[in-house]
C-alpha cells in the first residue's frame, strides 16, 4: 500500500456529486497539487483527509491505517473517535481563511497545540515557536493579536502553527486565494522554503500555477468528481493530454 490511499471514495452534497468513485494514492514525501475548476472536489479531498468532511462511501487510509474505518476481524466498521483522532494526528492543514484563534496572541496560536497535544514544556514550545516565526519572517510579531496583522502575515503565522504540530502530511487549501497577488507571493516564498527544507508530504489545492510547478512533483487534474489527468508538472503544464485540462489551463493562465 502507498502512504495515502483513496479507494472508491464518493461524496455528494444533495444532488451535487462532488466525488465520484475516486481512487488515487500518494507516496511518502510526494508533493501533489490538485487542480481543476471550482466545485470539482479538490478541497473536499483535503477536508476528508483532515476528517472535516465525511465520505459517503469508499475508504481512505494513511500508512495502512483506515481514517474513517476500523478493522474488526475481516470487516470494516465505522471508526471510533479515538481511532480517527489517532490516525489523523499525522495530518494538519492550512486554510484559505487562515483560521487563526483571534483570542490568542501569535505566539500562543503556535504553542497551543505543542503544549496541549504533543505535551511539550512551555519553554520548549515557546523556543520552537520563535524559531518557526523567524522562519516565516515574523519573529517580531509574537506578542501581537492576529487582528493586528495583515492577511499575508496571518497566513504565515498559520503556516508556522501547522508546522509546530510536526505533521507528516501538510494540507494546503487555497492558502493564497484570499490574498492580494504581491502579498500572496511572500506566503508562497515561505512555502517554497518549507518544501525545500523538510520532507513532509504535501497535498495542495492552488490556482498559483507557477508555484505548483515549482514545489510539486505531481499534478492531478480534477473534473466533475473524477481525476482526468495525473502527470508530472512539466508534462501537465507543457503538454496536457486531455481537452478539459487544456481548456482549464488556458483559462487560469490567461487570468494572470
Amino acid at each position: 500500500m502507498s502512504f495515502i490511499d483513496f479507494t472508491d471514495v464518493s461524496k455528494r452534497f444533495g444532488d451535487n456529486v462532488v466525488l465520484d468513485d475516486m481512487s488515487f494514492n500518494v507516496a511518502n514525501g510526494e508533493r501533489v497539487t490538485l487542480i481543476g475548476p471550482s466545485g470539482s472536489g479538490k478541497t473536499t479531498i483535503l477536508r476528508m483527509l483532515m476528517t472535516l468532511t465525511k465520505p459517503d462511501s469508499g475508504t481512505i487510509a494513511i500508512d495502512d491505517e483506515y481514517l474513517w474505518h476500523e478493522r474488526r476481524g475481516d470487516d470494516l466498521v465505522p471508526a471510533s473517535e479515538a481511532h480517527t483522532r489517532k490516525v489523523r494526528s499525522r495530518v494538519t492543514m492550512v486554510f484559505q481563511q487562515f483560521n487563526l484563534f483571534p483570542n490568542m496572541k501569535v505566539l500562543r496560536n503556535v504553542t497551543e497545540a505543542p503544549i496541549h497535544v504533543l505535551g511539550k514544556q512551555k519553554d520548549e514550545a515557546d523556543e520552537r515557536a520563535r524559531e518557526l516565526l523567524e522562519m516565516v519572517g515574523l519573529q517580531d510579531k509574537a506578542d501581537f493579536y492576529p487582528s493586528q496583522l495583515s492577511g499575508g502575515q496571518q497566513q504565515r503565522v498559520a503556516i508556522a502553527r501547522a508546522l509546530a504540530v510536526e505533521p507528516d502530511i501538510l494540507l494546503l487549501d487555497e492558502v493564497t486565494s484570499a490574498l492580494d497577488p504581491e502579498i500572496a507571493a511572500e506566503v508562497l516564498d515561505v512555502l517554497r522554503d518549507v518544501a525545500k527544507t523538510s520532507d513532509v508530504t504535501m497535498l495542495l489545492v492552488t490556482h498559483a500555477m507557477r508555484f505548483a510547478r515549482d514545489v510539486s512533483n505531481r499534478v492531478l487534474m480534477f473534473n466533475e468528481g473524477k481525476i482526468i489527468e495525473d502527470a508530472a508538472p512539466e508534462q501537465m503544464f507543457n503538454e496536457p493530454q486531455h481537452e478539459r485540462t487544456k481548456a482549464f489551463l488556458k483559462s487560469v493562465l490567461e487570468e494572470v
Binding site: 486554510f95 483560521n99 484563534f101 497551543e112 497545540a113 497535544v117
Partner: peptide, 18 residues
C-alpha cells in the same frame, strides 16, 4: 464562532475539552 475555528482546532488535534 466561525466554523473555521472548529476546523483549525481539529487540524491542530486539540483535545475536545481544550
Amino acid at each position: 464562532v466561525p466554523p473555521g475555528q472548529w476546523d483549525a482546532a481539529i487540524a491542530l488535534h486539540l483535545p475536545r475539552r481544550r
